[in-house]
Design a protein around this nucleic acid. Structure first.
Lengths: 224, 224
DNA sequence: AGTGAACCAACTTTCGAAAGTTGAGCCAAC
DNA sequence: GTTGGCTCAACTTTCGAAAGTTGGTTCACT
């Protein structure tokens, strides 16, 4: 990644790295983000860090309180429930539109994204307690590809934004042990199949269950 | 408005005023927002203006391009069509949830908001070519009150955010002449009535038509 | 001992100037 | 006459230090 390429500002770089560190779990939820520390960590100035945080705040990844600084968005079971309902409603809506509008090119892209996901390693060989960033990226890409058939940019952005927020929960609450009792691959295959055959009702039902399933595991984990 | 009250930063003030100026039409769509000018206008520094713009950008009210500054989001017929579809889908979804979840207190608040809307003056006596800010505020409050019955904060925020964006279009495209051939008051009354009697299907249909109607007028205006 | 006010340190917010980038206008060369 | 590169001005971006705010701690007083 270029330090100062064309059409890219320094703030963009800090924003991207900070975002990555939050989503990958380097900066845990609830973590206070102090400017002196951030400036050292990302070798930047207060202003740049501030703008990056402002952007992340409106994406819901960090929270700010006047004169008390920024914090990585804390997790709570109630918030997870709310987020899940919102995701199910909106992602299903967008998927339905995608199935209705999408062309063959969209189908091809979805199949390609699914192939990459199936080939991505799930567990980190170095740290088997957590899934790899590679898998997470492929997973996000697959779900985005499914929704890409919907021509409405705003609806896609809303759906993808909510999924981003949910990523925080997944990263911190799912343990491989829980994932074991579940065949995520089969869920993805089933969704893809229904999408390709344009069985909208089925695809939407499967996607809704897929999203809710993740949430149920997280909730159980929180109680334990 | 306090210059530096408790829990309020200077940036918040600039953000609020800038937002107001954009939504009320003082700063027209496509208008370039240069920092030297903004600093004079709002008596502030570059940094504060920058942060305010960053926030407005993620709300969709302004657009930024690296090294080329900020611009009030330009209007286009295609974008309006997209925005409208998104609004109909999501506002109807949220309204349906509100009707299903809302309690008596919610009904009362909606009725109150509607009363204020009916009593708000529509046309500005000084400038009859544009509707009053007072009416716009009451209109927004009414629609937010309708959705307030939905307990899901995220879904409400998405719906309200999209309506904010649409406000830009209304402000710039609706002329009183067009509004004449339409009884907006009747539309609002009908929606409210269906909501109170909990006729979800009817309420959702009416709201969808209400949103689309505004859009159709705007589109016709754009063609002329 | 308990209460409350004043102090202090760490941090957030704000500022204005320096550095870097873009696009346009101008001039020379073909 | 047209194309290509160069220069300049206006603006955006970045920086680091000054100003302001918060929460905690200490110390005097009841």
């Amino acid at each position: 990644m270029a330090t100062t390429g064309t059409g890219v500002t320094r703030t963009d770089g800090v924003h991207a790295r900070l975002r990555e560190d939050i989503l990958s779990g380097v900066l845990p939820p609830g973590q206070r983000l102090k400017f002196p520390e951030l400036c050292r960590r990302y070798d930047t100035s207060v202003g740049a860090a501030r703008e990056a945080l402002t952007r992340l705040a409106s994406a819901g990844l960090v929270r700010s309180q006047a004169h008390q600084g920024y914090v990585v968005t804390p997790l709570s079971v109630e918030d997870l429930a709310e987020l899940t309902v919102a995701r199910v409603e909106i992602e299903c809506l967008v998927l339905r539109m995608a199935i209705s509008e999408g062309d063959v090119r969209w189908e091809a892209d979805a199949i390609a994204a699914h192939h990459l996901l199936e080939r991505a390693p799930y567990l980190d060989p170095d740290n088997p307690a957590r899934s790899t960033g590679e898998w997470a990226a492929a997973h996000t890409a697959f779900h985005e590809a499914l929704l890409a058939g919907c021509g409405n940019r705003r609806l896609r952005e809303v759906a993808n934004g909510l999924r981003d927020e949910a990523e925080l929960y997944r990263q911190w609450s799912i343990t491989p042990a829980q994932a074991k009792g579940r065949d995520v691959g089969a869920e993805h295959r089933a969704i893809l199949a229904a999408v390709i055959t344009r069985e909208a009702d089925l695809a939407v039902r499967l996607l809704g269950e897929h999203i809710s399933m993740t949430t149920r595991l997280l909730r159980d984990a929180a109680e334990a």
